[in-house]
Computed example of a mutant assay.
Amino acid sequence: MRRLFLTAAGVFALDQVTKYLVVILMDLRNRGEIDVWPPFVNFRMAWNYGVNFGLLGGDGLILRWTLIAVALGISAWVLRWALNEGTGRVLVAAGLLIGGALGNVIDRILYGAVADFLNMSCCGIDNPFSFNVADVAIFLGAVGLILFTGKGPQKNGRDGRGRLR
């Protein structure tokens, strides 16, 4: 349980600190873009009013609070499930997902949209999308929950750990 809360708190803090440093102190919200290590790493300000990649985007109040409620609901469900079923890596994955989701919820409450600013391109591909630390944590947490949950394949009457069922 401690792993989950420490991971969630660490992700949340890292997300909010990076957003404050880049968006507020470096004034990315007004500058629009800052080349950090072109073309690999750049800061490009993007206010995301929707879900991933701006899908369902719109700056409506109903959508904003619906997305906040959905993020909080999913976070609560993952927390409850992980505390009842999870161990080790599952708790870390759940912490990543919850910390990232709460970081983006705070953005929606404070700014009305999620502050995305990281932009990475490589190898002649110009990536038009921006993201943030919370987005990375949510993605890694979701992948971790998929990879680390369950008892594994069942063969010959044995569970994933080789014990008889």
Score class of each variant (00 low, 15 high):
I68A: 01
L56E: 07
L97P: 02
P39Y: 04
G73M: 10
L28R: 01
M45F: 15
W65T: 05
A113H: 15
P128E: 00
V17C: 03
S130W: 10
L96H: 05
L28F: 00
V136N: 01
P39E: 02
A9F: 00
S130P: 04
V36G: 10
I62H: 12
A9H: 00
V70M: 02
W77N: 04
P39W: 05
A8L: 03
A71L: 02
P38S: 15
D27K: 03
L63C: 07
R163M: 13
F117L: 09
W47D: 09
K155C: 14
G88Y: 06
T87D: 09
A82M: 05
Y111H: 15
P153H: 14
R3Y: 11
I68S: 04
V78K: 00
D27Q: 05
F5N: 01
N42Q: 13
S121N: 11
I109E: 04
K155W: 15
I138R: 06
T149K: 09
M26A: 15
K155A: 15
V70R: 06
M45V: 04
A113K: 09
I34Y: 13
L14Q: 01
D59S: 15
I146T: 12
I146S: 11
F40C: 12
V133M: 10
E33D: 13
W77T: 01
A9W: 03
V36T: 08
I24K: 11
S130V: 07
G124W: 03
A137C: 10
N156M: 11
A94S: 05
V92A: 13
P153F: 14
N30Y: 11
K151L: 12
M45D: 11
N84A: 14
G50C: 06
I146R: 06
L21R: 01
W77F: 06
T66Q: 08
L164E: 14
D27S: 05
G60W: 10
L55G: 07
A8D: 00
R158Q: 13
L14F: 07
L97H: 01
R64W: 09
G54I: 12
V105Y: 02
D159S: 11
M45H: 12
L28P: 01
L110M: 12
G124A: 03
L4E: 06
F40I: 14
G112W: 01
T18F: 04
L6Y: 08
D116I: 05
A13K: 02
A76E: 03
G99A: 13
L145S: 02
A82Q: 01
L145F: 04
I146E: 06
K151E: 15
R89C: 02
I106F: 08
L91K: 08
W37G: 00
D59V: 10
